Simulated scan of single mutants.
Amino acid sequence: MELAGERCLIALACRVLAHAGLADSVLGHVSLRAGPDRMLVRCRGPRESGLLFTTAQDVHPVGMDGADVLPGGYTAPVELPIHAETLRRRPEVAAVVHAHPPAIVAAGLAGLPLRPIFGAYDIPAARLALQGVPVYERGVLIRRAELAEEMLAAMGDRPVCALRGHGLVATGATVQQAVVRALNVEELARMTLRANLAGGDLEPLPAEDLAELPDLGSGLNEEAVWRHRVARLELAGLGLPEEA
């Protein structure tokens, strides 16, 4: 199978997102740049059973225009423009995650901004928040290029963007990085909701404390977290089947 390793990686990413609660049911997709005008993306097939059960057979090469006729009754995501326009306009991005994480959606609907309210508890999440988590304010299905362009304008040069009443877009130089960034933003949203429910202070940490938060590097922030998430999948009996 063409690009078998990359297709398995995307399938694993979908399973990780679903197992972590960011992509319940059948909604969400992950893509990886596969050339100047093509990508690999998680598609929906005739026996769709949700992201938690994604296999490499559910991942297909698709042109940026989405005009491909896919085999076996598969269809590209309706929101393919999220991936196509992000990959077109952000050359540093190789992978895109779109999911519907419930805490991110709930925090946005409650009007709770995602601020760096904690520190060493989750340094990568705090650093993302410190740089700012932009919000695309429209809760629309991003099924046209012009809507994706609006979303990207809101996103700016940031690696993530919350979609009000909808979900999240996370990007990365690798699939692993994009997935871990999505996990980090959802953890930030979960803690924001918990602190708000408890009547806590949602103000950012003092600047001097935030300045003490180091970049722990991709080896710990992304690679180790990715291995941990894959190991949890396998422990739960949800690892990618060998035939995938």
Rank of each mutant, 00 (worst) to 15 (best):
A4M: 03
C8S: 14
A13D: 06
A13M: 09
C14F: 03
H19D: 15
V30Y: 01
V30P: 00
L32N: 04
L32W: 02
G35H: 10
G35V: 11
R38F: 04
R42N: 10
G45E: 03
E48S: 14
S49D: 13
L51V: 01
F53I: 04
T54V: 00
V59Y: 07
G66M: 10
L70I: 11
P77E: 02
E79C: 08
L80P: 02
T86M: 07
R88M: 06
H100S: 13
G111I: 09
P113K: 11
L114W: 03
I123P: 00
G132E: 03
E137Q: 13
E137V: 14
R138K: 15
L141G: 04
I142Q: 01
E146T: 15
E146I: 09
E149M: 03
E149N: 05
R158A: 15
V160E: 06
V160K: 04
G165H: 11
H166I: 13
G167Q: 07
A170G: 01
G172H: 04
V175Y: 05
Q176M: 14
Q177H: 13
A178M: 03
A182K: 10
L183G: 02
L188C: 07
G200F: 02
G200W: 06
P206Y: 05
L216R: 11
S218P: 10
E223F: 08
W226C: 07
H228A: 10
L233T: 08
L233C: 09
L233R: 02
L240N: 01
A244C: 14
